[in-house]
Design a protein around this nucleic acid. Structure first.
Lengths: 253, 253
DNA sequence: TTGATGGGGTTGTATAGACTTACCTAGAGT
DNA sequence: ACTCTAGGTAAGTCTATACAACCCCATCAA
């Protein structure tokens, strides 16, 4: 069949795309596929037409279809198995976390509603351990704040911070109902250096109460120190219920 | 039928490589090129032989050479310009691969003595959840291993891995008393992409026993997936007692 | 001197066809 | 129930060929 069409420049399903863009055929095939995946016509886990079927549908050679599919696999859009077929892959490319992010953005990115409550805002004098974290001597003055962050009225994080007054002299005067410590500090200066340490802890009774936990559920604890101009300016302890949060990141090597 | 010596229809520069490994031709071409770049024979910025020259030298078709070069460009090894040529690209952007560390190195770096014990080594079929993690369909065959890592005879980590047989067909035959899964897998190929997710969990009774915990102590759980050539090749679940381990990192911004 | 033209080399894309390899299933034989 | 085998399907690879797009440079003309 169709042996008489050698001379035609191939008028196919793709032809309208060709008119819109002089993109190469294999890119058009990729677009054809990703569009159907994005629209939900081909759901996650469902099987795509085989290479040969796409050849017939789109009127291109199998090598072209193959290249499109191979590149889509490299991009993580589909997965392929020899002898089986091609399938729609990942539902949601995971966002980069463990960077320096505002939890309010984090919650809103996930579709949740964020609010926070200030529990404490005071000046303290550092004991030995805390002073060490700041590379200072015991007794040095530090600002201390404790907030709770809620996602849809469920506590998601206890945010406890110690801030160097030298860096943020007006820290105690801020209205952290409208802005947040993260934003305020970041606005003064983005840190030049950041240290993260992550622990698993069993929460104290006080933390359990703040997070409204029923029992001694395992919690993630992230301790962050930030430097500006070689000096520690902030030490934050962020506590999350293990059942409600996780840290993640994905990157190429 | 398995005709045993179908490997050498062509006697070329590549033939010895062919004998050593039944890798595909375009991979052999990639290897041929990367080896010369690594050895310094082709220095940074220097021009590679043209596709047609490589065709003559290596005795493969131009499409095969082209695929090899295209993939090397995708990996950032070379740069290409239409009408100009192909050039050696990166000096050594090998930086910070070391978030992917061997726990044995980790323990020994801290002055501890490391030993490990193999608990399980088997083939399984993936259920729905696991198959999804591999972007595969339920029922796909996977290798499954469980090891315990000790620091000075104290359990520090439960290492549970699921490995794609396609990537590491000989996984079950390894002696993980002498080498470790991490090293073995890394040696086959360093991953092109890595995903980390960190949880806090309360361990099951079985995990408590393996870690020799007295009670339901909070544990850190690191779930790692690694990709090679766009495919998930490994999913690892690493469980640490919260009192004995933490994750950390420090970097400039 | 400046600008246009064109040829040769190089990568980019596309095709048809063949063969290989891997997976799955159904059926036959324990 | 279990294992083995054969056949079908689909992706993986490789080849030979063709043309397109692009860059560089030499040549030639204004």
């Amino acid at each position: 069949m169709a042996s008489d069409t050698d001379t035609l420049p191939r008028r196919t399903v793709l032809s309208d795309l060709t008119a819109a863009r002089p993109a190469s055929r294999y890119e058009q095939v990729k677009h054809y596929i990703t569009e159907r995946i994005a629209s939900g016509e081909w759901g996650v886990g469902s099987r795509l037409p085989s290479e040969n079927e796409l050849v017939e549908t789109l009127g291109v050679s199998r090598m072209t279809v193959h290249r499109a599919l191979r590149e889509l696999m490299g991009e993580g859009i589909v997965t392929r198995a020899q002898g089986v077929g091609t399938f729609v892959a990942r539902p949601a490319p995971r966002a980069e976390v463990l960077e320096l992010r505002d939890i309010a953005d984090d919650i809103q990115a996930g579709g949740g509603r964020h609010r926070s409550r200030v529990v404490l805002l005071e000046t303290i004098r550092a004991d030995g351990h805390l002073a060490l974290a700041f590379d200072q001597r015991p007794g040095v003055k530090l600002f201390h704040s404790v907030l709770i962050h809620y996602e849809d009225d469920t506590p998601l994080q206890i945010e406890e911070r110690f801030v160097s007054p030298h860096f943020a002299p007006d820290y105690l005067d801020q209205d952290f109902a409208t802005t947040h410590p993260h934003r305020y500090l970041f606005q003064i200066s983005p840190p030049h250096e950041v240290e993260h340490v992550i622990f698993a802890v069993t929460p104290e009774a006080e933390q359990q109460a703040l997070l409204e936990l029923d029992g001694p559920e395992a919690c993630l604890q992230l301790v962050r120190r930030t430097w500006v101009e070689g000096r520690v300016v902030m030490r934050g302890v962020f506590t999350y219920p293990g059942s409600r949060y996780s840290f993640g990141g994905r990157r190429q090597t």
